[in-house]
Design a protein around this nucleic acid. Structure first.
Lengths: 339, 339
DNA sequence: TTGATTTATGAAAACGTTTTCATATCTTTC
DNA sequence: GAAAGATATGAAAACGTTTTCATAAATCAA
């Protein structure tokens, strides 16, 4: 069923049908109504490929989501989509595995859909200008990663992120302020050029600034962000018989799993062990005890991301690197130590 | 940058370039290499619209997601995507608001992308053949809804679901078996032709079969599936000073929020009040106490959905209505009542 | 050698739309 | 009642690709 068939059924030309569909003037009411009726009857929907070929495309922004889905991504995606649609851009999304090259994927999406800009969710923090070159000057923004510790090359793309290092440092500092000195950390990796590593650096900085010696025995690397692994990591940590009064866990869901491991081992929360995290998963507001965590401002981050990207697309400004504030959400999982 | 430009740069015809890109034989190694090199250099990516126009499309299956995102949808979407890709179909997705007509959206997506079939996540349970007609014979499957209580019209589409009514009944029966007779229920709506209503019917059936009088005072309608509302609903229920020893909450996240409300009111879990739910949210396996819930087999449901849909597309069988088994995951939130 | 295959290449049609241009009819305006 | 403008319609070109058909060169079989 093509526009030709519709035209034939109505006894008019394809031009007229096209005009009706695109609300051009200069079509008599009589014909317009008839065409609309036939279109309705036949459930006719134009072939997007054909339209795409001939119409100057509507401006579109693409989103590349890298790695396995997690709660943060799942919150960000619809928010980004709305923000993009609200600014009159169309939205395309492509999900890729961690093993794929995200910039290559971005370039492919950009080219094939004629994108005006690309957002990357879940990349690294250290793209070089040479790597970004593949995008062929399509504006590119990285949502999630930070320039803390000067590890980012700022010349060829924008970013919106929280300051992972600073948030981690603040989280650990909060524990220290509450009298904790033996603080464990549970993270995915100490050296993957992403969130995990940055938060690890924040942890170490906080210890250092407070004159607390770093103890490698209190560092648990899980390899990923899963709850299973976090649970096991905490179990293993406990089995070491190494004393600690608090744990900084790099994500909320991992923190929940760690708390369960503590509870299963007979530890009372938060008395026997305090737990603090970074993220802001909704459900952790309702667990018992409520998780103390530094909340990433998801909605604001999504909006800022689209705004920053549009600034480049619409030539209002050059690359920018916006660092958003995390907010401490105090729950009941951190306890003041008396000694 | 089109295929023409590439051809010109290589001094060959567009035909040859096209052949290179589609791995046709009968291109000399010399030319093939040259073309590939230029394509690489120019970051050339073919215009999808043009390809779409002329190539017999790869078979594709579409997914319509209706309503606000929730944890169940977020789990199902990537699983469905993999299952679809694994069977060699391309995947398209479109998210719509509850206010939009899901069948109309499905029809539009199907037409414009030339879909072989459509999956609907989050619809109602009672589509009539007349409504489904808009799809113009594109196979259609509803994932999530059930035929319990004979409320489904089976003639014009397939479905994969859990038996919401039966699961709800089993959940309530479990509470009764543990000695509970004053059982509250927290749900979104008692009459919205979807999950909520079906689970409510299961609750009532269980009570009836055990000779327990139905008490409307123990029914709390929240209006949606949010944790905020569930929390408030439980608070309100508690303020009624109406005695109850257990609560059946229709979703895991709502159950978590209810448990928090109980805890905040000084009730000890599960001693002062047992809680049971249906869903199987990962995180509820790690909360304290672990939530007792009937787990929806997400992965299996996704696989079955794609399989059932392919059965129709590939003419192996007619419409089917598969009801998947939920599994009781016993946690610590249900307590045997001693009296 | 001849003719038949196989290999290699290009010209042009086709896909389903939109849009430009041309044309025809209908209103105005004087 | 003629010129000018507004309104209404259609023919055909254009978009970027794939594919069919034609043709040419190279290889093979006798």
């Amino acid at each position: 069923m093509t526009i030709k068939d519709i035209a034939a059924k109505c006894g008019v030309s394809v031009t007229t049908v096209s005009r009706v569909m695109n609300n051009h003037p200069y079509v008599s009411k009589e014909i317009r109504d008839k065409v609309l009726k036939v279109i309705e009857e036949e459930h006719f929907v134009p072939h997007v490929g054909a339209v795409d070929l001939v119409k100057p495309r509507t401006d579109a922004i693409g989103l590349i989501v890298r790695g396995t889905r997690n709660e943060f991504f799942n919150d960000m995606i619809p928010t980004l989509e709305s923000a993009i649609n609200d600014s009159g851009y169309a939205f395309y999304m492509s999900q890729i595995h961690t093993s794929e090259n995200e910039l290559r994927a971005a370039a492919a999406l950009a080219k094939s859909k004629g994108l005006k800009g690309v957002i990357l969710l879940g990349g690294r923090y250290d793209y070089t200008p040479e790597e970004v070159a593949i995008l062929d000057n399509v504006p590119f923004i990285c949502c999630t990663f930070t320039n803390s510790f000067g590890k980012i090359s700022k010349e060829s793309f924008s970013s919106v992120s929280i300051d992972d290092g600073r948030a981690a440092k603040a989280a650990v500092q909060l524990l220290i302020d509450n009298g904790h000195r033996k603080i464990a950390i549970i993270l995915a990796s100490t050296s993957d050029r992403s969130i995990s590593e940055l938060r690890f650096l924040g942890y170490k900085q906080a210890l250092e600034e407070n004159g607390i010696p770093f103890d490698a025995d209190l560092v648990m690397e899980t390899g990923d962000f899963s709850m299973e692994r976090a649970y096991k990591a905490m179990k293993k940590l406990l089995s070491k018989k190494k004393e600690f009064t608090a744990a900084f866990v790099i994500s909320d869901s991992m923190a929940v799993a760690s708390m369960k491991a503590l509870d299963d081992a007979g530890k009372k929360l938060p008395n026997d062990c305090s737990v603090i995290a970074i993220d802001g998963v909704k459900m952790t507001e309702y667990i018992i005890p409520t998780l103390t965590t530094f909340v990433q401002p998801r909605e604001a981050m999504a909006k800022q991301t689209v705004e920053s990207l549009r600034d480049i697309i619409e030539n209002r400004s050059d690359y920018s690197h916006v660092v958003m504030k995390t907010t401490l959400r105090e729950g009941g999982s951190v306890k003041k130590l008396q000694n």
